[in-house]
Amino acid sequence: MPKKVDHEARRREIAEALQRIASTRGLDGVSLRDVAAEADISLGRLQHYFRTKDEMLLFALRHINALAERRIRERIGALPASPGHEPPPRAVLRECLVGMLPLDEKSRVGALVGAAYFARAVHDERLRTEAREGIPQLAALFTELLRNAQERGELPAGRALDPRTEAMLLISLVDGLTAYTLLGVHTGEEALERLDAHLERIFGSSD
């Protein structure tokens, strides 16, 4: 009997080869042939799974995002909570935001792949549509957490705050912090400090 090929596993192996290239020399000018060599397969074999570099980048980005989401869910699951209650919205929101920053090698590589994909998406409507799809869901999650915090009285009294606007500002903040971390404008630790400073402006001191 011929051995059954796990095509999804093979795609993940190719995505991981792309990630290794991103972590060592970036993705500028990287070709399908380069990734095939890194994955130790022929170019024809790679093109059986990905016809173009854009297809490969998209799969790699989705794979990385799925892994990041799993790590964030694990971090949220480890948050302290009283019996029968979920963790406070601020704590959940912070874990989500921290998980989006390039603070270790895995998240740094994910950010590099994302930057390469988004740079191509600016000039390609199909890729741009794909790149935008996740933003409304993320904004909805953050909006719900902020609204929940309002209802629980966890925001400073007497302060008018629009959860939807604040959610989009948080997404924009993390995008900017990510870009500046990758560029070396600040360190990951400084990015985290600035994120916490902004959360303190929204929620007040956590002391």
Score class of each variant (00 low, 15 high):
E55G: 06
R71Q: 15
I171H: 03
M56Y: 07
S107M: 12
L43S: 12
L170W: 02
G77P: 05
G204Q: 10
I76L: 12
P80D: 07
G188S: 14
P163N: 06
R164N: 06
E189G: 08
S31H: 00
L43I: 12
E133Y: 00
T187Q: 08
A111Y: 01
D196I: 13
A78C: 12
R126I: 03
Y117F: 13
Q150E: 13
G84L: 04
A111G: 05
I76Y: 07
I76M: 11
A81K: 10
Q150P: 08
L58W: 15
E95W: 10
R120F: 03
R20W: 09
E105Q: 11
P80N: 07
T129N: 07
P87A: 12
R12Q: 11
G44I: 09
E200R: 15
E13H: 05
A115P: 03
A179R: 15
M168D: 07
L177W: 03
A111W: 00
T143Y: 06
E151H: 10
A157N: 10
K3C: 00
D162N: 11
E86A: 10
R201Y: 14
A121C: 04
A115F: 02
A81F: 04
H85M: 12
F59T: 02
L112V: 14
Y49M: 03
G44M: 11
L182Q: 11
R194M: 15
G153V: 04
K106T: 13
L32F: 00
R120P: 10
L169P: 00
Q19H: 06
K53F: 11
S42P: 02
S42W: 01
R10H: 08
R70P: 02
G204N: 10
L199E: 14
L27E: 02
L32E: 03
D104L: 15
T187P: 13
D175W: 01
V5K: 09
G29K: 09
P89Y: 12
G188V: 14
G134K: 07
E166G: 03
C96E: 14
E95I: 09
A160V: 05
R132A: 08
K53S: 09
A66Q: 07
C96H: 15
A157Q: 14
Q150I: 08
R201G: 13
R126P: 00
S23R: 14
S172Y: 03
A36K: 04
Q137N: 00
L141Q: 10
E55K: 05
D104M: 12
L97N: 06
E166T: 14
A9C: 04
A139G: 10
A22Y: 09
H123Q: 07
A119Y: 01
A191W: 06
T178F: 00
K3L: 05
V122T: 06
A39T: 03
A167K: 01
A60R: 00
G204I: 10
Y117I: 02
R12N: 09
P163Y: 04
A111D: 01
N65D: 13
I135V: 06
R12F: 11
T129G: 08
V35F: 00
I135R: 06
N65Q: 13
T178C: 03
S31F: 02
D175E: 05
E38A: 15
Y180A: 09
D207G: 10
V109I: 15
G110D: 01
R10Y: 07
L169S: 00
V35D: 05
F203N: 05
E125C: 05
L169C: 02
